[in-house]
Design a protein around this nucleic acid. Structure first.
Length: 553
DNA sequence: GTAGGGTTAG
């Protein structure tokens, strides 16, 4: 056989492999895994340097990234290193993408540092890798480095960097990225705009997010769910109910995720009639088979004060997965029925068909917290680690801090924070600040406040809390300083809202609100109710209210 | 070749 014929056969074989990929036959992925051994069998010294072979390797790595098959991808990388094969920018980018998708930060960073040539895709993949794997600050550093090196960012880089801003609460850089998106002309691209919206919502800036949402053209279900969710996160659940009505009048129909979000808004507002309406809507829409929707419905009924309806929905679901069970534990928890929640938990554990996960423990720990079951909570926390080999998240530590803080064990709560193996999120410090207020522990409050302000400088509620504590303590200068700081930094406070459901209307009120046409009668009735409460020995804790409503905030 | 959403605390 002449060399010419041999080469022709080899090229045909490789074309055949490429054809298999084009057909995207995931069933024959096991066959794909053998490509490397097939290739090794080939006379690679000649063939590996051909463009066709690099194309096959590239296609193989792309398939691995799609199927999240890290080992198969690694074998290609190892093969390339062994054969001293550079592979070119596209192949290296494909490998980088594989590591980034898998969350293999070390491998990605290692490859990235060794790449002689990098383009905007290489930078984008690495920034995304850091942003999605708990190294958001590093992602932002890399973004700056990219700019310094003169690489022009594209929309993908902006999206990943915005996610890093979201994770670090870096509103200033988020705004700069917004300006950049405007300059580049992709501000209103649906993905960019949705990520910007998420960033503003996460950085306690709902006004900017809603304004951007208004400008968006071609909104889809993801953008609607982002705005609904963001409003709820920022204490504007009533606004998301209105937006949901707008959505129903738009071209885009809600999907299961949007239903979960709107049920959450309903839970926040505690409006039972709306929960019932949504229940009917989701049955008609065929969403009731979705576990997440079912769980949200249970939660909504429980939070809208109808534990009975929540139990009915729970009992009506025969094939309960862990999400459904967890929402029922939480449901009992909201009503202070920690013991029933615990009984149900052990019933689930005994059934041994469903294994508790991190969220299950969050629900059950929260139920213990609401019922003051401290010992049980500590036992469950230990059980989570030792029996179920689950790693507690910041939220689990947050509940433990809340639980101990509420009963006045502030030092123990602080110990939990100090021993946390994870970065402490602002909420945990906020919880300690709240507990310090309950027990008027000024020293602890200042420590908690310092940390929370550093991590979430735009959350006005925490400043209000500290200022009120100073005022109660008679430290008027300190209280005034905090208020001045908030004013100077233009930190906006979302007013606390109360909601009342009246037949087919939902009325919302804020403190000292006189806008309602019947406000005279409402305040008269409030006076009567206050008098009755005093008669029955119920004294309101006005420490919090008195200062919160001053003009200072 | 790279990109936006689902149960959960306070």
């Amino acid at each position: 056989m002449t060399l010419y014929m041999f080469l022709r056969i080899m090229i045909c074989l490789m074309l055949f492999c490429g054809l298999l990929w084009l057909l995207d036959m995931s069933r024959i992925i096991s066959l794909k895994r053998h490509w490397i051994s097939v290739l090794e069998w080939l006379w690679w010294e000649v063939l590996l340097r051909t463009q066709l072979c690099l194309l096959v390797l590239f296609l193989h790595v792309s398939a691995c990234a799609q199927l999240l098959d890290l080992n198969a991808g690694r074998s290609v990388h190892g093969f390339m290193i062994r054969k001293k094969l550079d592979g070119g920018l596209s192949l290296q980018n494909a490998l980088l993408n594989l590591y980034a998708k898998w969350g293999s930060v070390k491998s990605a960073a290692n490859l990235f540092s060794k790449m002689e040539e990098k383009d905007v895709i290489s930078w984008g993949s690495m920034i995304s890798c850091y942003a999605h794997n708990g190294s958001a600050s590093r992602a932002l550093e890399l973004f700056n480095e990219m700019i310094v090196r003169g690489v022009e960012p594209n929309s993908v880089v902006v999206i990943s960097s915005l996610q890093a801003c979201e994770a670090t609460g870096n509103l200033d850089l988020g705004k700069k990225l917004h300006e950049l998106a405007v300059q580049k002309g992709f501000e209103l691209d649906v993905m960019v705009a949705t990520t910007l919206l998420d960033m503003y919502m996460s950085c306690s800036s709902p006004d900017e997010a809603v304004e951007l949402f208004g400008k968006m053209i071609g909104k889809d279900a993801v953008s609607w769910s982002a705005v609904l969710c963001g409003c709820v996160q920022n204490g504007l659940a009533y606004k998301s109910m209105g937006l949901f009505r707008d959505m129903l009048c738009s071209q885009i129909q809600p999907d299961a995720i949007v239903m979960v979000k709107i049920l959450t808004a309903c839970s926040e507002l505690g409006i039972l009639q709306q929960a019932c309406c949504l229940h009917g809507y989701l049955i008609r829409g065929g969403f009731d088979n979705n576990a997440f929707v079912g769980a949200s419905l249970i939660e909504s009924y429980a939070k809208c004060s109808s534990l009975g309806d929540a139990i009915k929905v729970f009992e009506g679901i025969k094939d309960r997965d862990v999400v459904i069970w967890s929402s029922m534990f939480a449901g009992y928890g909201f009503h202070g029925r920690g013991k029933e929640s615990l009984e149900l938990f052990y019933q689930m554990v005994k059934s041994s068909t469903v294994s508790p996960n991190n969220v299950t423990f969050l629900s059950i720990l929260s139920a213990c917290s609401h019922a003051g079951l401290v010992e049980e909570a500590i036992k469950l926390f230990n059980m989570m680690v030792s029996d179920y080999k689950l790693t507690p998240e910041t939220k689990h530590y947050g509940i433990m801090v809340d639980l101990l803080g509420r009963i006045g064990e502030l030092d123990q709560a602080m110990d939990i924070i100090n021993q946390m193996p994870l970065p402490v999120c602002p909420h945990v410090w906020g919880t300690l600040l709240g507990a310090s207020r309950i027990h008027q522990n000024m020293e602890m409050a200042e420590v908690a406040a310092r940390n929370v302000f550093q991590l979430d400088p735009n959350h006005a509620g925490y400043y209000v809390l500290l200022s009120n504590m100073y005022a109660v303590d008679g430290k008027w200068d300190n209280a005034a300083n905090v208020r001045t700081f908030v004013k100077e930094r233009e930190i906006k406070k979302v007013s606390g809202q109360s909601t009342i459901e009246l037949t087919d209307k939902v009325c919302t009120f804020i403190a000292n609100d006189r806008y309602h046409p019947n406000s005279e009668q409402i305040y008269d009735l409030l006076m009567v109710l206050h008098a009755k409460m005093r008669e029955e020995g119920c004294i309101l804790d006005l420490d919090f209210l008195l200062h919160d409503t001053e003009d200072g905030f």
